[in-house]
Amino acid sequence: MAAVLLEHISFRYTAFGLSDVSLEVSPGEFFTIVGPNGSGKTTILKLIDGILAPNGGSLSLFGRALRRMSRQEVARIVAYVPQDGAAAFPFTVREVVLMGRSPHLGLLGFDSARDREIASWAMELAEVAAIADRPVTEISDGERQRVYVARALAQKPKILLLDEPHAHLDIAHQISLCESLRRLAAEQGLAVVAVVHDLNLASMFSDRMLLLHEGRAVAIGKVEEVLTPALINQTFHVPVMVDEHPTLHSPRVTLVLSHGSGGNGQGDHRG
């Protein structure tokens, strides 16, 4: 049974929206969503989490219609790592991660020894155990991002949604995060849906991906079917070359600057 199933979803937002997006993510799959800024990537994550309601189409998690589920029921199977979360109150890292256990707590809302064990496990995995007792108001953006990953893992979700989890991370943490998530997907059947900006990172770790452009699915499928020079050029409007990663054999995207010499300050994708 599909962990996540979107059928002909449309969503109207003031300026942009989504039209007729369908996708299916299986348990254990690492699925990424790529596309230019404003193409609707985050919107899809919020629809899957039930924070936004679609205007048309149907959405189900493990065969259950999302609109029939309460927030708590959703939070027991879906965890969400936000793009950025400013911390206003000086809760410690451990306290914030323990909040991930909230959907599973009893009436009085106290965590059990098992909840604390799960939080410790999540902090190890997200590499924040060393800063467990620091207030979240006093750590770096990258550390805070990993705290939110740990909080999401502490929810013990079956579906993990990540919105640009790499934005504030250095390359070592980018890679170790992706490897941890892949391992969780393989070992525990976790379905991972991530919005990723770095096409090469997405290529190295994804099973399948969705390429979005202006609220429409341009392509969906295996990485090598989606990351083609023609499709990338069509959506991002930058010329690229695609060859094979020397060891992983996944597609490798290289930017080709259109004006031979003007190298400085360009590069990267633009929105």
Partner: peptide, 14 residues
């Protein structure tokens, strides 16, 4: 809720 309204929704708080 103190950590943010959207975060609260993600964690199952109505």
């Amino acid at each position: 809720l103190a950590t943010g309204e959207e975060a609260a929704l993600h964690l199952g708080v109505e």
